[in-house]
Structures are given as C-alpha cells and as structure tokens.
C-alpha cells in the first residue's frame, strides 16, 4: 500500500475544444518553444497536481500513455511521404516518447528516474503497480506518476484503432498523482492488488470486500462483464461512475475524481480481454 499526496487532472471530451497551448502559456510562457500539444498537455496536468510548490529533486517521474505522442508521428510521416522531406530535428526529438517527461522534469527541476511506459490495455494499473513496488521496496521515496493521452483526429479512425464502438465518445486527458511510501500529509492510500485475475477471481475477491466500499469499472469493462460481476455478488453494491470520454489512461481521471469529491473506499475494476486488475483507494 502506498499514499497519494497530491492529484491534478486535465480532462476533456470529444467536441470540447481544449486550448492547451493558451493554458500552458499562461503558466509558463518560456516553455512554449519546441513543445508540441502533447508535451504541453503533459506539463499542464502535472502542474494541476503540483502547482508552484517545490518538489524534492530526487522525485521520480513515471509517465504512462496508451497511445503516446501520435500527432508528432503523423507530422513526421506526412513530412516524409507527402512532402518528401527529412524530419525537422525538433520534431524528431519530440517523437521520442520520453521527451515529454524531459520537459516535465525540467519544469519541476527534477533529476531522478524518468520513465516513459506504455501497454496495450491496463496501462494505468501496471504502471501504478510498478510505482507501488518501487515505493514499498524503498527504491524511490516519492514518485510523480502521470497518464497522458491526446485525442487524435479523425475520430472515426481513432475509434477503430482503439477498438471501441462508433457511438463511444472519445476524450483526452493528463492526470497526475504524487505518490509516497509515507502516510503523513496524504489525501488517500492506494493499493494495486498484485495478483492477476480473471473474472472468476474478481468475483471471489469481491466476497471479501465490505459493503461500504463503492465499485467503479474501467472503460473497457463491457455491460456483460459488469452484470456478471454484480449478479454473482451477494451484496448490493453502490457504484461510482464518472462521465468521461474514452482514452487509455482515463482510469487515473476516475481515481483522481474520487479522491477529490468521494468518501470512504473505492474498488476500481478494470479489464483488457480476460485479464483483470483491481485498485483499492481509501480516502484519509
């Protein structure tokens, strides 16, 4: 179990125009040059969590993304295949996924570990589990963990590549939490259940979860999966649902919203295919 000291979110849904550049320029006019929208979105979310307060320089930075900075890749692709030109050096640098993390570290003056990780499904759960292990083992004292995904046009194409239905509303977001092994001054505790589970395992696990705990489901949990889990449960559960457009790291938005406005305990259940991961959050 680890602790959440600070949270911050930027979140928007398909159709909402999020002027990331203007918002970031208001925070840091100096750090606009060479940064693109994905990088600015990363910075803005981290700033929502940390603001102008100073972070210990050894704070590690774990940044996760489902899709990564696809926009810069598309620029490079068009440059190569349509304009028949070599990549611009700044675009090339920005196409390296860890460049966003570089700018976040530069802004907060960090020189600790700086990771950029991704995964096909359950990216938040796996990244959070790594952070939990590193804090529990004392490998790190404090970790700034973020999930960033940018909405890609055209949405019809993006929906197909994400494997979601045409009716699903897409979203984008940059959601961050400052994690610590120490309880003092924390907002909440968080525990990623280390055991991997299938749906049967989830149902068994639920039998030991007390009735006051709220349940939330990840965006990839289908209605059938949710019904199967709830129908097999002896307790009438109260559900926590946060309206949010679809993106791969939206789980962090749900957790952050619960920490901000909820109370008590939340069990977050997420899946990708047959594979399930559970996260327990307790407000302090």
């Amino acid at each position: 179990m680890i602790y959440i000291r600070k949270i911050g979110s930027v979140n928007a849904q398909e159709g909402e125009e999020l002027d990331v550049k203007a918002a970031w320029k208001a925070v840091s006019p100096k750090m606009i040059r060479r940064t693109d929208r994905f990088i600015q979105l990363s910075l803005l979310g981290a700033y929502e969590a940390i603001g102008d307060s100073a972070l210990d320089k050894n704070t590690a930075l774990y940044m996760a993304s489902g899709q990564g900075n696809l926009a810069v890749f598309k620029r490079l692709r068009d440059q190569r295949y349509i304009n028949k030109q070599p990549p611009k050096p700044v675009d090339f640098i920005n196409s390296l996924s860890n460049t966003a993390g570089f700018y976040v570290a530069q802004f907060f003056d960090l020189y600790g570990k700086n990771l950029n990780v991704s995964r096909q499904g359950l990216v938040v759960e796996n990244t959070l589990l790594l952070a939990q292990v590193d804090l529990e083992l004392g490998k790190e004292e404090q970790i700034l963990l973020g999930g960033v995904d940018e909405l890609q046009e055209p949405v019809s194409f993006t929906k197909r590549t994400l494997g979601v239905s045409d009716e699903t509303l897409l979203g984008e977001g940059s959601n961050w939490m400052l994690l610590s092994a120490q309880e003092q001054g924390s907002l909440a505790s968080v525990d990623v259940i280390k055991k991997q589970m299938n749906i049967t395992g989830v149902k068994e696990y639920l039998q030991g979860v007390n009735s006051a705990s709220k349940l939330a489901f990840g965006q990839r949990c289908s209605k059938e999966v949710i019904d199967e889990i709830l129908d097999g449960d002896a307790i009438e559960r109260s559900l926590y649902h946060v309206p949010c457009g679809f993106y791969e790291t939206a789980a962090l938005y749900t957790l952050n919203r619960f920490i901000k406005e909820g109370e008590g305990e939340l069990l977050f259940i997420d899946n990708f295919g047959d594979s399930f991961r559970l996260i327990k959050v307790n407000l302090l």
Binding site: G68, S97, N98, G101, L115, V117, N126, L129, L130, Q196
Partner: peptide
Amino acid sequence: EFSLTYNTACTSSANAVID
C-alpha cells in the same frame, strides 16, 4: 500478465532491466 513497454530512447531496455 504483468508487462510494460519502455520508451526512454537509448536507455529503454536498460531501464527495463532495473524495473
């Protein structure tokens, strides 16, 4: 099922070893 893919340029798989 635990997996992560690291993309930190030329340190990617070295960082993967640490984790």
